[in-house]
């Protein structure tokens, strides 16, 4: 099989805009799933609401497209009731960190055996570009017309603090690294959280001068800083660019987990 065998041919083309990163992230995720040799008949994809969450509907497996913010709570029910199923969750920054924030930290605390891929595009895309909990300070959106005034969440740090066994962050530019990170997440018992910085030219890019998908990718390429380098700079007391995107593996551990297949 290849990742293409994991996609529902009769559901394509997808609804995502040209230049959107979500398709890339879906492909990387399913490529990692494919490397696991999972049985599509024993795999469940769960999602919430938002652009990211349409991903579940494109996967050739059982899929549960739920309510806004609640994907992890639904997935918890699936996985605890039937631990032998492989469960992957697609979510976005608004879905996971705003309306679903409580479920996010509690799923991490339970360390339930799910792999969660968050397409973090810093904006509510589906509803037309409103600010989200990850919209950076000063960034423009339809609900932050004078620049976002609230500090943003660091989703990866949140997942680490809340207890997830595996946490990584990459961008849609880093397709090989992302694929490997998802695979590492799928292999790790307990909750694996992979935050993927995603571009949204239509809603985020248009307002914040990243109009072209290529500009977005270039930004991801130039601003990304490996976690090891970031940690070294901080330890040495050296300055870190304020717009750096820290990428890499944040934690990999084997704390007690729930819902692990017997």
């Amino acid at each position: 099989m290849s990742f293409e065998d994991w996609l529902r041919a009769d559901r394509l083309p997808h609804i995502w805009c040209s230049g959107c990163s979500n398709g890339t992230i879906l492909n990387c995720t399913m490529a990692a799933v494919d490397m696991m040799d999972w049985d599509p008949d024993r795999t469940v994809v769960v999602s919430g609401i938002g652009c990211s969450s349409r991903a579940a509907g494109y996967v050739e497996a059982d899929s549960l497209h739920t309510t806004h913010g609640r994907a992890l709570a639904f997935a918890t029910g699936v996985k605890l009731a039937e631990p032998s199923l492989n469960v992957v969750v697609f979510t976005g920054d608004g879905d996971l960190a705003a309306i679903g924030g409580n479920h996010f930290i509690h799923a991490c605390r339970r360390n339930i055996d799910l792999t969660v891929v968050c397409m973090n595009n810093l904006i509510y895309g589906m509803t037309g570009g409103q600010g989200s909990p990850t919209t950076p300070l000063g960034a423009l959106s339809t609900t932050t017309p004078y620049g976002a005034a609230e500090p943003a969440f660091d989703l990866a740090a949140l997942a680490v603090a809340a207890g997830a066994n595996y946490v990584a962050r990459w961008t849609s530019y880093h397709v090989r690294e992302l694929e490997k990170a998802v695979k590492a997440g799928l292999e790790t018992p307990g909750l694996s959280f992979i935050e993927v910085r995603a571009g949204c030219p239509t809603n985020y890019g248009r307002k914040n001068r990243i109009r072209e998908a290529t500009d977005q990718l270039e930004q991801f390429r130039t601003r990304s800083m490996l976690k090891v380098k970031y940690d070294r700079l901080v330890a040495e007391g050296k300055p870190v660019p304020h717009d750096a995107i820290v990428v890499g593996e944040f934690v990999r551990r084997s704390n007690p987990a729930m819902g692990v297949a017997p």
């Binding site: 609640r70 709570a73 918890t76 029910g77 699936v78 605890l80 009731a81 199923l85 409580n102």
Partner: peptide, 26 residues
């Protein structure tokens, strides 16, 4: 069977729905 205390009632009914789709009465 499985008992789980969820973080709130929204999560509780969500987990129940998820469990029901695996064929369990929930």
């Amino acid at each position: 069977g499985v008992f789980v205390q969820m973080e709130d009632e929204i999560a509780s009914i969500a987990a129940v729905i998820g469990a029901s789709w695996t064929g369990k009465k929930a």
